[in-house]
């Protein structure tokens, strides 16, 4: 576990984003600590995807500030965020299916040969890229027969593995994964969750956006609960039950300053399966 006083890798305060009448983010806070897997959960419309978009530069918040390693940053585009070492894995398997694995890993960041071949003839260094791709896949224990096969010939889990490996390869600060298991079967989801742990164990913090509570509880160190455009709680999966966390998500419970669950709406809390005593 990460000590609580460690400087956050990323920190956001009071993020606001309005779309016309709709307030998607209403003073949202965010904090990612070094070496953790932070799950971000919330009901539909709670503002989790807007939050993530603000953190990755896909949208610019109306107000609030974002700090990376204690420095205020202003991301205007996802490319900005990437330049700051933030890599995002998208839900819809953002790979180029006809290209091979090594090409996908290096897409947009191709390496050129050294010397005249690279500078004048702009020649790709395919052997070096294949070597580094193989190394990366081996480190993350993603087993593949050959790196020269087209990504379209892989299973859904392996494809997601390629997308995750690419993110892990280039991220210097953090990896954000948006519903990485949504399109996958049980076994493949398990592989991706293992992958998330391995990335964390290599020292990269991971933000996991997921609807899948069992997955969140299996892999997260802390859980950021988003509700009505704000962060309403940060809980540890070993201190609160899944039904309590769901109840917080829906507003039936709140978590007070001393980390105790407080019932707001007894009926809803009971419906969510939380025992009347609240805590544990």
């Amino acid at each position: 576990m990460t000590p609580a006083h460690a400087q956050p890798v990323m920190e956001a305060r009071g993020l606001v984003k309005r779309y016309g009448q709709v307030t998607a983010l209403d003073g949202a806070d965010f904090e990612l600590l070094p070496g953790e897997v932070l799950a971000v959960i919330g009901d539909n419309g709670a503002g989790k995807s807007t939050l993530i978009k603000a953190l990755t530069g896909a949208i610019v918040p109306d107000s609030g500030e974002i700090k990376l390693d204690g420095q205020v940053v202003h991301f205007r585009t996802p490319i900005d965020a990437r330049r700051h070492g933030i890599e995002t894995v998208y839900q819809d398997l953002a790979v180029a299916p006809a290209l091979d694995i090594a090409s996908n890993l290096f897409l947009g960041r191709e390496q050129r040969r050294s010397g005249v071949l690279g500078t004048v003839f702009r020649m790709l260094d395919k052997p070096a890229m294949r070597r580094r791709a193989a190394q990366q896949m081996a480190e993350l224990k993603i087993g593949l027969r050959s790196l020269t096969q087209a990504v379209e010939n892989l299973s859904g889990g392996q494809r997601q593995g390629v997308a995750v490996a690419r993110a892990a390869a280039w991220a210097e600060h953090m990896v954000i994964m948006d519903e990485p298991t949504a399109a996958l079967g049980v076994k493949e989801s398990g592989q991706v969750l293992d992958l998330i742990r391995r990335i964390r164990d290599r020292g990269l913090p991971v933000v996991l956006i997921s609807h899948n509570m069992p997955h969140v509880f299996e892999v997260a160190d802390r859980i950021h609960v988003q509700r009505l455009g704000r962060r309403v709680a940060v809980v540890k999966p070993d201190e609160h039950s899944m039904s309590e966390v769901v109840a917080v998500m829906t507003g039936a419970l709140t978590i007070d300053a001393s980390d105790q669950a407080v019932v707001v709406d007894q009926e809803a809390a009971t419906a969510a399966g939380v025992r009347p005593t609240g805590k544990e």
């Binding site: 996802p78 995002t88 819809d92 290209l99 897409l107 191709e110 702009r122 790709l124």
Partner: peptide, 24 residues
Amino acid sequence: GQTAWGRHVYAVGNNPEAARLTGI
């Protein structure tokens, strides 16, 4: 076949959204 530009041409035709997200 041998330059980054070529790769980008293929990627844009293959999955433009993925290409854009990787910064191409």
